[in-house]
Write a protein that binds this DNA or RNA. Structure first.
Lengths: 169, 169
DNA sequence: GGGCATTCGTCCTTATACTGATGATTGCCG
DNA sequence: CGGCAATCATCAGTATAAGGACGAATGCCC
């Protein structure tokens, strides 16, 4: 059932007794809560423009890639293709993004930022930065850096979990 | 707009340049991904029973509290009351949970575990534990403990962000 | 070059999550 | 005791997220 290319070591039971512990001691619970909190902070800081963290991720990825097929975007932001299509439809409705059929491969759609989208990114930047900083504000700069390193490590290690086609790169 | 009882210090701009950095260097992105990953691992480990992490959280909270009004559950698991009602409706449909009007206060509903729900919790325990351990598997035991401490600290610090009525206690 | 597995986008369904609004009930204050 | 603000659950609406299925297009293999 595992069989990843990386061939993970078996998770040997550390005998950790999650059952007895309160929710607050469980990784899954805390991660969900922190995610919730960051989204709330982001929405608060960016209330002026109506944009969500995921939309921001997609716009940012698009800015870096210049132009991309939906499947590439899906891989870049770690989202299901279904979900990417969904978010892109909303972004297109708001004129942040353009989609055209690829002339090379008629199965694909090529996505690119519009001027409106590029302008939005610039307006959003400061708010997004504040949201990120407030999310980590409780930690000292040292602890913050360490936490980010661990976080990146955890994500990279299990990067191929979930539907994301080729895993995230 | 902030004005929490705690009176947070202003987030002084550390001048962090998130804009130039790739998504992988942004806290929000990594937190979302890790959440995604944990959910996927949980679903994989608990595929036998059809249950989600949030449903598991609610059942667990209910087990600890014995019996509770929806508003108390909402506070315990850090979810919107709307959302709690939603999840409870699904759990009730699967006979995991009972809801009755409170005789004391006819606005409230009292929720409790059924035998089916209690049995499910026992069956799920090992899988949930494996999911939690796999989520953190990339870190050494030392780093894992430190990461959990930081995570708890971050959540506790911003606990009152989001709609959750009284904040989580 | 004709079949056929693969790929890409989309549709349908289900489950979190939050906001805003509403209806029922309660407790409090005069 | 009569009104009125606050509380609790719910409803409607929107946005992530994933799974399953499907049609169109592609490319590869014989």
């Amino acid at each position: 059932m595992l069989q990843n290319s990386k061939e993970k070591r078996r998770v040997e039971s550390t005998g950790e007794d999650w059952h007895g512990k309160p929710l607050q001691a469980r990784p899954g619970f805390l991660i969900r809560r922190l995610h919730q909190i960051h989204v709330a902070l982001f929405m608060e800081e960016c209330a002026a423009e109506s944009i969500t963290p995921v939309q921001y991720s997609i716009l940012t990825a698009l800015e870096h890639m210049g132009t991309a097929e939906q499947i590439a975007l899906s891989s870049a932001v770690g989202l299901d293709t279904t979900n990417v299509a969904d978010v892109l439809a909303r972004l297109e409705r708001q004129r942040m993004v353009k989609r055209r059929m690829s002339p090379r491969d008629k199965r694909m759609k090529v996505v690119s930022l519009t001027e409106t989208g590029r302008a939005l990114l610039l307006r959003i930047d400061a708010g997004a930065a504040r949201a990120h900083e407030r999310t980590l504000a409780a930690l000292s700069p040292t602890a913050r850096a360490r936490f980010m390193r661990d976080l990146a490590h955890l994500v990279e290690y299990n990067n191929d979990v979930s539907r994301t086609p080729m895993g995230l790169r």
